[in-house]
Each structure stands twice: as C-alpha cells, then as structure tokens.
C-alpha cells in the first residue's frame, strides 16, 4: 500500500522536475505587474534587460480585475511581481497565491509594492464597512500625480538593482534618463535644462512645497515654464465632480477643485436621492465638468448633466486604455487636454 501511495506522489513529482520549463528569456528578468502604468514604468527603467507584462486590461476597473488561471500561470515563473498596493489591486493576492511561485510571495525580494514612500492622501481614521468599500491605507490612485511616478520609478529601479546586481549601473542610468524625461514633460525641457543637472530635483521640491510659481518669478524664469505645469494651469481653480475619488492626486498637482463625487459611498453606485443632491451641488457651485471613468456607468453623470448643463468627460486611468494613450506621458497629457477642453 505504501508503495502505491509513494508512487502516486513521487512519480508526478519526478515527471514535473523533468518537465520543468527552462527559462527561455535569455537572461532577462521577467516582470509581471498588475496594472499597465506599472508595466510602462518598469519597461522604461528595465530597458532591454527585462520583459514586462501586465495582468489587467487597461480599460477595466483596477479594483475589479478577475484573476484567471492564465494570469496565475503567467506569474508562475516571474522574477519580479509589482503591485500598486494601497488595497487597490487586492486581486493580486489570489494570483500570487495561485502562482505557486515562491520567489514572488509577499516579503520576498521578488514582490514589490510600487507605492512605498509615496505620500498617501485620505487616510481613514475609522476603517469600517459602514463607509463603503473604503481603502484602509488611503486613496490608492497615486499614479495620476507625475511626482509620485518619480518615487515609483525609483522603487522599481532599486528593486531591479537588488535582483540583478550585475546590471545595477544600467538600471540606474535608465532610471535617471526616465526621470529626466518625466521632469521635462512636467516642467518643460527648456526650464529643466536651464537649471542644470539637478534642475529637475529642485523643481520637484518647489512643486511639492507649492512654491514653484513664486520661485520661478523670483528668478525670472516664469517664461520658461512649460510641460504639464504650464498646460495644466488652465485647470487651476476649475471646480469638477467625479464619479469616484479617483482624481485627488491629479487635482492637487494641477489645481483642480474636486467638490464631490457621484458615488455617495466608495464602490457603491449612487442611489437616486444622492444624484439629486449632486444636481443641487452642481447648480450651487457652478460646476461645469463631471469626470466619469470609462469603466463606470455614465448613467448618473448623464442624469446630472441633463439637469445642470454640465459636461461629462469620459476619463481613462491606465496606460494603453486608448491606442493614442500608449505611454504614461500621453495619459497625463490626455487628461489635461480633455478636461481643459470640456471646461471651455
């Protein structure tokens, strides 16, 4: 009997060891990310030393991705798994558990929570289901502030250096280059260049402390400001309503005033009485724009728009959600341009 049991267990084990697929990635690190913006940033930092694949479809709600056997298997031989964290992509736990990949389990070097060290907003003081599907670790939509992408890219670079020390200098150089491109996109290439090597860092610090405009004026550099900070100036002070609390980071960076949400409680579609309360608010505040993420029903937004004359802007959150939004930089440009256009 024992022989039979042993055979039942050992034969498949031996067969599996023999069948185990050899890594056919030619020495490249295999990275699996939950969301597509993470895929994009990881590819920018990792360059040709990594292969990166994202699990979620860029058009779908990042909260509600369905883990599938294909995702589990895709992750089973990953060297690095990157999640957004902050209880946004919690479905990743099912994938990581089912992958059977010891290298990417939480706590391993192969598992990275990309948003570590990102200053998180809206930390709840009471964590209860009575508040709806709240995020116990704060608002997770951090990537819509380009300054946070700098931190995320740095986290990815550090982890790649740890996992693949032989290419450490390469990853550091890629990170510096990407940071430079991001700074140029944010402040304009001319301004960053005018300030010299660490100009981007200085500008980021000024932006974080809300003193960029004064600082530039003092130095007579205001005319050189370009990029999103110049383009986004048209959003400064614009009052908007959003379906979900998606845009808090974007709004803080570009001066949008978020006056409320169509959802009464996060994660739960707005009940009719709440829609009417929003209609009153939109009228009272003179709000002209309603932001509705592409994956949410636009029924409530259309209702409010029909009663108030406000304009509904369908927004996209992830890289690759539209053919023309195939980079992070294009995603931010797309958001700024579409919201500005609707406000005109």
């Amino acid at each position: 009997m024992m022989k039979r049991i042993s055979g039942f267990i050992l034969l498949p084990l031996l067969a599996l060891c023999a069948l185990e697929q050899s890594p056919a990635r030619e020495g490249k690190l295999k990275i699996v990310t939950t969301l597509n913006y993470l895929r994009y940033v990881a590819q920018e930092v990792g360059g040709d030393r990594v292969t990166v694949v994202a699990l979620a479809n860029a058009r779908q709600d990042p909260h509600y991705v369905t883990p599938t056997p294909a995702m589990n298997q895709l992750t089973s031989d990953a060297d690095l798994f990157i999640e957004n964290g902050l209880s946004l992509d919690i479905w990743q736990k099912n994938v990581v558990d089912a992958s059977g990949n010891p290298a990417i389990q939480p706590g391993s070097p192969g598992h990275l929570v990309a948003t570590v060290n990102v200053p998180v907003k809206e930390l709840p003081t009471e964590v209860s289901r009575a508040w709806g599907d709240i995020h116990p670790q704060g608002n997770p939509h951090v990537w819509l502030d380009p300054l946070n992408i700098r931190i995320i890219a740095a986290n990815i670079a550090e982890r790649l250096k740890q996992l693949d020390p032989a290419n450490s200098a390469y990853y550091q150089s890629r990170f510096e280059q990407y940071k430079g491109r991001l700074d140029a996109a944010l402040f304009g290439e001319e301004l960053v260049r005018a300030l010299g090597k660490s100009g981007g860092d200085v500008l980021v610090r000024k932006a974080l402390n809300n003193e960029l405009a004064d600082w530039l004026k003092l130095r007579g550099l205001e005319g050189k400001l370009g990029g999103w900070m110049k383009e986004g100036a048209s959003l400064n002070g614009l009052k908007v309503i959003s379906y979900h609390k998606t845009y808090i980071y974007f709004a803080d960076r570009f001066g949008l005033q978020l006056t409320g949400e169509l959802e009464e409680k996060p994660g739960i579609p707005p009940p009719p009485q709440h829609r009417d309360a929003v209609v009153e608010e939109v009228k009272r505040e003179g709000i002209r724009v309603i932001l509705n993420d592409n994956f949410y029903s636009r029924e409530a937004a259309d209702y409010v728009a029909s009663k108030t004359g406000a304009k509904v802007v369908i927004t996209y959150l992830d890289v690759g959600s539209l053919p023309e939004v195939d980079t992070y930089e294009k995603l931010i440009t797309f958001l700024i341009q579409n919201i500005s256009q609707a406000a005109r």
């Binding site: 084990l13 599996l16 060891c17 069948l19 185990e20 697929q21 589990n72 298997q73 089973s76 031989d77 558990d97 089912a98 992958s99 059977g100 990949n101 010891p102 389990q105």
Partner: peptide, 17 residues
Amino acid sequence: GLLKRIPLLEDAPLGMK
C-alpha cells in the same frame, strides 16, 4: 496548510503547491 515551496526541492516546479 498550503506549502508554496516544496520541501527538499526548495522550489516549486511548474508552480506546484
């Protein structure tokens, strides 16, 4: 209990659990 790394092998061939 769910073992994510096979004892002795210290690995998980084919994502074995």
